[in-house]
Each structure stands twice: as C-alpha cells, then as structure tokens.
C-alpha cells in the first residue's frame, strides 16, 4: 500500500470527515467551505470585492491590531508561567527571564514591543477609518466599539506597565494614577480602588496583574467579537 492510497483511506474515514468537512481547495465550493466551515476563518465572507484586496484600502491596520492582540495573548500566557505578582519577586522574575529561561528575554521583548505597537496600530486604524469615512451609517455603533477598544488597548498596556516592578514601571504608574486622581468626585475613590490602598504596593501589583491578565483581555475579546461581527453584518471595507 503506497502513501497515496493510505492518505486516501485516512481522508475517507468518518473521523477525518467529521473534523474536515471538505476536500482539497480544488474547487470554489471547497474553498467556500474552507471559510465558512472553519471557526477561525468564518468571520470572513466567502467572497470579497477584488478592490478591497488592495493594500492602501485598509493598510491592514485593523487586521494587524488583531494580530498583535493574538501575539500578545500567546506571549503573555507564556510569560505568566514565570511571573509572580509579588514584591520583589516580580522584579526577580524579570531577571530570571533575562538570564535563565530559554528564550525568556525574546518573549518579554516581543510582548513589550507588541504592546507598544498595538496602541499605535489601533490609533492609526482609527485615523484610517475616520479618513475613509467608514464610521458612517450603518457602522456608527462599530465605531463606538472601536473607540472602546482603543481605550481598552491603552488600559491593557498601562496595567502591564507596572508588572515588572522596576523604577520605570513604578513611577510611570505613580504619575498615571495621580492623573486619574484629579477627576472630580470619583477620582480619589477610583485611585484607592485601583491601587487597593493609598500607595503603590503589593495590592496594586496584584490588582494590575488581574486586570492585565484576566479582566481587560476578556473584555477586549468580547468587544473584538462584537467588532468583527458588526463588520460582517454592516458590510466590509468598501467605502460608501
């Protein structure tokens, strides 16, 4: 029995067919099936206007922002294996990543730079959407979701900033939370709740950690789902 025969046999089994619902990309039918039977690809329509493939149409900014979100999730989860939100272990763990853990420094670098890039890309994405007028009806609400996602990106990046517990982190957060404190009425209370106390200490570190690793990413994921869903429902990237 040669390899091709074996392959044919495997592909024909009920198990295989229960996982992969179509065969090769040999026909438009199978290509369409690829998209809409795949949970990851089905946010796309089966067909798109040829014009929208052009790069300058979107600059890929939204897609890249999402790609960065994915990259941040993957690197972030890996970094969590070696991170303890405690003082001074948090800082020590940064050193462990740098000196001991295989590829630890690379992962931390990727995470850090991707975070900066995401803030930038989301902002640029917003500008692009504005100038191409893609916020106009019927997409008003998706614009609002986008603005919320921009704020979430900022908060994600900001909460991650404290986690290494170095001087840069500590004082950046000090300045940032004092800016928030200036808000009338709710400012001081907000700061108190955010820091879990009056000073930036272990409580604040744990709170920022939970926000950074659980609360904000989940919120972002939900809003992203809504964002993409609306893109599908309200139409693609064609200008009106």
């Amino acid at each position: 029995m040669n390899v091709l025969e074996l392959k044919e046999r495997v592909v024909a089994t009920p198990v295989w067919r229960s996982i992969f619902r179509h065969r090769y990309l040999d026909s438009n039918r199978n290509r369409a099936l690829t998209v809409f039977s795949n949970v990851f690809l089905h946010i796309h329509p089966v067909k798109v206007p040829e014009k929208s493939l052009r790069l300058r149409h979107t600059m890929c900014l939204g897609g890249l922002s999402f790609a960065l979100f994915l990259a941040l999730t993957v690197t972030g989860v890996l970094l969590m294996f070696y991170y303890r939100p405690a003082i001074p272990q948090a800082y020590r763990d940064m050193k462990e990543l740098e000196f001991v853990v295989t590829s630890g420094a690379l992962l931390r670098n990727l995470h850090r730079w991707a975070a900066h890039a995401m803030v930038l890309f989301v902002f640029l994405h917003m500008a692009r959407v504005f100038y191409s007028g893609a916020y106009r009806p019927p997409r008003e609400f998706n614009w609002v979701v986008g603005v919320l996602l921009l704020i979430l990106s900022l908060l994600l990046s900001y909460t991650g900033y404290l986690l290494p517990w170095d001087q840069l982190a500590f004082w950046a957060i000090t300045v940032g939370t004092n800016m928030a404190e200036a808000a009338p009425l709710i400012g001081p209370k907000f700061k108190f709740l955010l820091l879990g106390g009056n000073v930036i200490g272990e409580n604040a570190l744990v709170r920022f950690y939970v926000l950074h690793c659980v609360v904000l990413p989940l919120a972002a994921a939900v809003l992203l789902a809504v964002h993409f869903w609306r893109v599908r429902k309200d139409g693609g990237v064609r200008p009106l």
Partner: peptide
C-alpha cells in the same frame, strides 16, 4: 554584583541599571 546574572557583564554588575 548581580548574582542572578549569567553573563559576565551582568554578573559583575557594571551596568546602567
């Protein structure tokens, strides 16, 4: 010096931070 480091420069601690 910096005990946790595994590089010569890092361990001998003559670094900016």
């Amino acid at each position: 010096g910096q005990g946790a480091a595994t590089t010569v420069r890092g361990a001998h601690g003559r670094l900016k931070w």
